[in-house]
Amino acid sequence: MERCQKLKRGDRRLVVVITKKGIKLPYVGKEKFAELMRVGLRYDKQTRMFRIEKTEYLEQIKNVLTEILKEPITFAQTCIICGREFPCTECPYEKICRSKDFPSYCICKNCLGKPELYRLYLEKSGKLVGL
């Protein structure tokens, strides 16, 4: 988990960014724990972190975590080109994206301007898929 600052109408607002590693939560109690498991999170006893396993109920995951942390939640995207994790709030195309906030692979703002981006993407995507 990392906390990033988001600028919104001049206010500085905290947004909790959940990365692939997972998120550490304070004690949530039995009921909330069961709810988290039901919506698709898994608890790793060794690292004591909650990790997203199923993405079917992302909105519900968001709501439950927002309730627990009392701060808005966003999921980190992984840049397929450089491997960096970043929130959608960083992306210049955030407003027009139809799969916004869905934790997946994308291209970060630093890599957007790279020459031959399409070829670079196909290369990295091929490696990722295992071709």
Binding site: C91, Y93, C97, L112, Y118
Partner: peptide
Amino acid sequence: IPFHHVRPPLLLALLKE
């Protein structure tokens, strides 16, 4: 296996190509 809408940066890269 769920599929989602393709992200704008990828679509833009394809259109430029």
